[in-house]
Write a protein that binds this DNA or RNA. Structure first.
Lengths: 108, 108
DNA sequence: TGAATACTTGGCAATATTGCCATGTAGCAA
DNA sequence: TTGCTACATGGCAATATTGCCAAGTATTCA
């Protein structure tokens, strides 16, 4: 049983989900989608990025099943599929604060 | 206010934490450290990686404050600083299952 | 001392990620 | 039809990540 075999499965899948979340722009989109479905143009309006880049970020989230898309007219609306993801941020915030506290201690 | 300014701060910090977690090996280590402190050699015994690679993965976790290290004798013990991180996995698992369900539907 | 163990760090190559531009597709409106 | 809007995709360059090897430090033990 080699490394890739041992790491395949549960941990690989978890890492994929976390990697999909691990970008500021995608975190912003997930947070916004937590308030309700949004079209790509609405999400693009929140950032200073090319439409193609926004589209690719959304395809990353869609690729791991965190969001789904639905075309209505000539717009595409994205919906958050696992809203519990938003609760992750509570602990992440705690980690962030612990991190900042550590920095303070280092430079004291 | 450009993109980097708007994205700096909260979202950048959150993304850093999630990025530190977004690797199968580091997820394995975090899960193991959830059971208690472990020395580097114990963690290395769980994977098929060079000691230097294991050390670098741990330094990534340490860099964002998720773990701390303590030297005792000639061993270094790592401790999980934010055990609530383990609860993240509940929702990630839910996302994984939703993801797999989606795959099943696609290939049906 | 000297050697062995436990770990870290620097450097490098292979690979993955990110963002832009150019281009393509689908729906709507004239 | 033609043109316009809203997105998606391919390709590419810049950058980041990953893992190995080699070399370094610190501690223990003989």
């Amino acid at each position: 049983m080699n490394r890739s075999e041992r790491l395949s499965g549960k941990l690989e899948l978890r890492a994929q989900i976390l990697k999909a979340l691990a970008h500021p722009t995608r975190l912003l989109f997930v947070e916004e989608l937590g308030k309700g479905e949004r079209c790509v143009c609405e999400l693009q309006g929140m950032v200073d990025l090319d439409m193609s880049t926004v589209s690719k970020h959304l395809s990353v989230l869609k690729g791991v099943g965190l969001v789904t898309d639905q075309k209505r007219g000539n717009q595409v609306f994205y919906t958050l599929q696992t809203p519990c993801i938003l609760r992750i941020f509570d602990c992440v915030e705690q980690a962030v604060r612990a991190n900042l506290q550590k920095q303070v201690e280092i430079f004291r």
